[in-house]
Measured scan of single mutants.
Amino acid sequence: DVEPGKFYKGVVTRIEKYGAFINLNEQVRGLLRPRDMISLRLENLNVGDEIIVQAIDVRPEKREIDFKYIP
């Protein structure tokens, strides 16, 4: 289970104008929005990159997770 405030290693699987989709595993995916990136820009991410993200909002009923990147 993903818990708000905890850090997780994930893989960038898709990049859109509104953010990057990060997979923690095959069943768990969330969104990293540009506003939640500190010292990292969306255009510097590539599909396949491994990054450490912090879960900031977890909505299991909608199967949605918002992430934050903190270097």
Results as ranks from 00 to 15, higher is better:
residue 67 F to K: 02
residue 21 F to G: 01
residue 27 Q to D: 13
residue 23 N to S: 14
residue 35 R to D: 09
residue 68 K to T: 08
residue 70 I to T: 12
residue 24 L to R: 00
residue 54 Q to E: 07
residue 24 L to T: 03
residue 10 G to F: 04
residue 4 P to F: 09
residue 26 E to M: 13
residue 28 V to T: 13
residue 25 N to A: 10
residue 2 V to L: 09
residue 43 E to Y: 09
residue 62 K to A: 11
residue 27 Q to W: 15
residue 24 L to P: 00
residue 37 M to K: 02
residue 44 N to H: 15
residue 29 R to T: 12
residue 3 E to F: 13
residue 13 T to W: 05
residue 25 N to P: 04
residue 64 E to H: 11
residue 7 F to T: 07
residue 39 S to K: 13
residue 4 P to M: 13
residue 1 D to R: 15
residue 34 P to L: 11
residue 52 I to T: 11
residue 43 E to N: 11
residue 30 G to C: 04
residue 48 G to A: 04
residue 19 G to D: 01
residue 48 G to Y: 06
residue 68 K to I: 09
residue 61 E to A: 12
residue 28 V to K: 05
residue 71 P to V: 07
residue 31 L to G: 01
residue 31 L to Y: 04
residue 43 E to M: 09
residue 24 L to I: 13
residue 22 I to R: 00
residue 14 R to Q: 12
residue 60 P to D: 08
residue 40 L to K: 10
residue 66 D to Q: 07
residue 28 V to C: 08
residue 25 N to M: 05
residue 17 K to A: 14
residue 33 R to P: 02
residue 9 K to N: 08
residue 48 G to K: 04
residue 36 D to W: 08
residue 23 N to T: 13
residue 50 E to Y: 15
residue 27 Q to H: 15
residue 21 F to S: 03
residue 17 K to S: 14
residue 32 L to I: 05
residue 3 E to D: 08
residue 23 N to E: 12
residue 71 P to D: 10
residue 36 D to V: 02
residue 7 F to A: 06
residue 68 K to H: 07
residue 10 G to P: 00
residue 59 R to E: 04
residue 22 I to Q: 01
residue 67 F to G: 02
residue 11 V to P: 00
residue 17 K to M: 11
residue 65 I to T: 04
residue 49 D to Y: 07
residue 52 I to F: 10
residue 28 V to A: 08
residue 44 N to S: 14
residue 28 V to S: 08
residue 27 Q to I: 13
residue 21 F to V: 10
residue 49 D to A: 08
residue 60 P to G: 09
residue 36 D to I: 02
residue 58 V to D: 02
residue 61 E to H: 13
residue 66 D to G: 07
residue 21 F to H: 08
residue 67 F to P: 01
residue 45 L to G: 00
residue 9 K to G: 05
residue 32 L to G: 01
residue 7 F to Y: 13
residue 55 A to V: 15
residue 12 V to E: 00
residue 63 R to Q: 13
residue 18 Y to I: 10
residue 3 E to I: 15
residue 44 N to D: 15
residue 55 A to M: 05
residue 43 E to H: 11
residue 17 K to C: 10
residue 54 Q to P: 01
residue 60 P to H: 10
residue 4 P to W: 08
residue 68 K to W: 04
residue 14 R to I: 07
residue 50 E to D: 12
residue 32 L to A: 01
